[in-house]
Design a protein around this nucleic acid. Structure first.
Lengths: 220, 220
DNA sequence: TCTGATGGCTAATGGTCAGTAGCCAAGATC
DNA sequence: GATCTTGGCTACTGACCATTAGCCATCAGA
């Protein structure tokens, strides 16, 4: 690698925008690449060089678009929780029936975990990688989200619509099922997102003791 | 920190076994410390110095007892899967009734995830940190374990004891619920391990469509 | 045509870390 | 008592990594 003096700059660096990359896309391209890599290799094992390579630039050039590696993680994780909470708010808004609210909440939960597998996956695995103002922010939102399910189930109990031994365990079961979806679901597999959401809705209702239409072994 | 020449060795290093550490315990002490640290900080963020400090020695001294950091992780993860499989085998051995087999399988699953929270937690989060002969070993055992639940549910369907839309989704739900336990359960909290196992057994039976004794809102 | 902003680049910096080398004291064995 | 083994230690090595410094080509707008 001797810098021969006669050819001062053979190929000094790539043109600023080799393909149609409209500059506003750069940042979101970086975010997506980071998400993909964080999901596949973990936050700690992903280097800025990796992320750069995924979008066609060098590691240090990323700092023209993002402040730090940590910022990328924090954005993903806070965004995930905000979206889950917003989806849940929308889900319960359309009805007052506690069974229907639970079904819709669960469907929204499953839909998010199926459609945004990587975000959900990273969001669950990398909580410990967040630094402190951000980790608290994420944990607070996560608590809020859990509380919504627990209180819904408690309301169902009070209205004698649901029957469970512990609302806390029921809500954890339901949430944890959904979290699991993010680790095994693949688009284009045996089920569509809609089918999945509906089935998990049924399962959640069974968990809280609501009789769902019986499914004999062979009608699906 | 100048090494003054007159006091040649003020305190060169600790005595080989300062307290009653019977030398066979050293290795398991290291394994336990590593487990605790891997669970709390993640594998990648835990240094050999951290693990050494947790057992009262320096990082490099660990290599007198273990071959590598990776070996510690692999031992934890393979051991976890082997134990889960062994527990499952024992659980189904005592009965032929498919409902009872499912209940006992789920109870064993929950018991393991509650009693060995850290192993289960690390076992789920650090799969990607395993290097290659070991990652395959763990994934193969994990597949085997999942298959046991799925096939049990399929048998229950064939015998008309269970009614679900998809045995695969039912088995994932049940397993994922248990995995979640490892992340929130604390000994000495609201429930004992036995209560937890029993409640999750009920929930699993509800998921597969078995009528469990009705629980009205206020009888527990 | 000039000029500033943008977004690439390479090189360097400061830090961390797994693992190795080689030293040594205490206890065990002979 | 001499010697071996065990399990500590410090110092070091080689690698990797996030981030900064500073350079420069292209492009948009004046």
């Amino acid at each position: 690698m001797s810098a021969s003096p006669r050819e001062t700059y053979e190929r000094p660096h790539r043109p600023p925008r080799p393909e149609g990359a409209p500059a506003a896309d750069r940042r979101s391209g970086i975010r997506e690449a980071a998400l993909r890599l964080f999901a596949a290799q973990g936050y700690r094992s992903t280097t800025m060089t990796d992320i750069g390579a995924a979008v066609g630039i060098r590691g240090p050039s990323l700092y023209k678009h993002v402040a730090s590696k940590h910022e990328l993680l924090a954005e993903i994780m806070i965004g995930t929780m905000e979206q889950l909470i917003a989806d849940n708010t929308a889900a319960v808004a359309g009805t007052d029936d506690v069974r229907e609210q639970l079904r819709r909440s669960v469907e929204a939960h499953i839909r998010y975990h199926a459609r945004h597998r990587l975000e959900a996956f990273v969001g669950n695995r990398e909580i410990g990688s967040l630094e402190e103002p951000d980790q608290d922010r994420v944990l607070a939102r996560r608590s809020d989200y859990e509380r919504r399910f627990r209180e819904l189930i408690e309301r169902g109990m009070a209205e004698r619509a649901f029957g469970v031994q512990s609302a806390r365990i029921a809500s954890y079961s339901i949430l944890d099922m959904g979290i699991g979806v993010a680790s095994w679901f693949r688009e284009g597999g045996e089920f569509t997102v809609d089918q999945l959401a509906y089935q998990y809705g049924d399962i959640a209702l069974r968990i809280v003791g609501v009789r769902t239409p019986d499914v004999s072994g062979d009608d699906q």
